[in-house]
Design a protein around this nucleic acid. Structure first.
Lengths: 225, 225
DNA sequence: GCAAAAGTGTTATGTGTACACCCATGC
DNA sequence: GCATGGGTGTACACATAACACTTTTGC
């Protein structure tokens, strides 16, 4: 760092963002993938992502890529940078540094189709993804780790669900993210004792005994980052 | 991402690293700062850092900046990327994205002097630093948070000490990092019960009763990242 | 013998975990 | 009435936090 112009050794690199966007589908944790339409790695699956535009903040770029590479209409409920992948040879086109983001999309975000220059987009199993382009498998693995860390800490599970939900549904989100079964009684005790849920008094019908509906207690929303 | 050449909207940005390097001095947690020798922010204190060279990995750049901006001879015991600062206007020279790193330097890393294009370097209070250039105060604050998180998790406290150390010294490291007092008996019980320390049988002399020396138990070293 | 720092146990409280049966509804 | 999923309580192990006095050394 020496004067008001960039010094010659200042590497100019391509700055990109990639987004690991998660949602629940059919009781399973899914990640949003796009099928690449161009080289390199044409037709391979990849995380949505692309280059940051001039004057664009990192999180804005992440949101834009979500919206244009896939037809996702809903706002992410959570968006957070979690690691920067900058290995010299991670991309055959040159030195490209990618700031990876973790996003949580709410329930109901079902329909996606390829937008922009991708062939398609789909929700796929987060724990058993198809082969991915570039180093995206490493990015996904790290995103899963971060998601599991954040789960308890920031009440992230609620962001996967609609405004009202049942305790078994909430437990399903925990189990899908942690990839293991939890004990029903201990789960209920823990969640209810932390006081972040209020019963909404109604019940939902289906097969078997109807479940109590809950909603997030007022003032328990955690800030985005 | 479209073909094997970078597309026109690919923002070329300056890629930098900054390093928050911590060590214990005089029973206090200190951070290594350099006094800038050039504009912008000439004469202000800043975290050591600078541009990544072509073909250089991020962590290599972090190590190089530590060695050339300050005369630090010792290897960091821990080096970890923790956040990427990319706000559009964080640097008056243009779009510069900085991948911030956390480093822990071992005991004995006492003498530093400015190297390269800095006026000087010094260990300063990590919890009450002087005013810092750019957004380095925000970087430092986040580094402190990460250091506190990692403390228990990865036995990071041992990296601040020489090979053998006393329990009161180790407790001092915890207290300096967490910025609060701990209970001596509970601390000893907790640390000894986790089985990562072995008594080295010797004793160190000074004022008051000599303390038992310990060393890290074999096979308890945690991987760098 | 006194100053200075090291070392030592018990109790109360909270938290995590394991575990099996009854309840309400739709068909 | 039966299949389906929802809802409930207790006991034990373990971790955490609070708390005060004795021991060893140098001078």
């Amino acid at each position: 760092m020496s004067d008001l112009t960039l010094p010659p050794q200042a590497t100019q690199v391509g700055l990109a963002v990639d987004v690991a966007a998660f949602a629940m589908h059919a009781g399973e944790l899914r990640v949003l993938l796009v099928q690449r339409g161009a080289l390199p790695h044409a037709r391979d699956w990849a995380l949505p992502g692309g280059f940051v535009h001039p004057g664009e903040e990192l999180h804005e770029a992440a949101l834009r890529e979500l919206r244009t590479e896939t037809t996702v209409e809903l706002e992410p409920r959570h968006l957070e940078q979690f690691f920067t992948f900058g290995e010299v040879n991670r991309d055959p086109r040159g030195r490209i540094v990618s700031v990876a983001h973790l996003a949580v999309l709410p329930h109901g975000t079902v329909e996606v189709s390829g937008g922009g220059h991708t062939l398609g987009a789909a929700w796929q199993s987060a724990h058993q993804p198809p082969p991915l382009a570039f180093d995206h498998r490493a990015i996904l693995d790290r995103a899963l780790g971060r998601l599991q860390l954040r789960l308890e800490y920031a009440n992230l599970a609620l962001e996967f669900l609609p405004d009202t939900f049942t305790l078994p549904e909430l437990q399903g989100v925990y189990e899908a993210i942690l990839n293991r079964k939890l004990d029903k009684r201990n789960f209920r005790k823990r969640l209810l004792s932390q006081g972040t849920l209020t019963p909404s008094g109604e019940r939902r019908s289906g097969v078997g005994r109807p479940a109590q509906l809950y909603r997030r207690a007022k003032g328990t929303r955690t800030p985005a980052l």
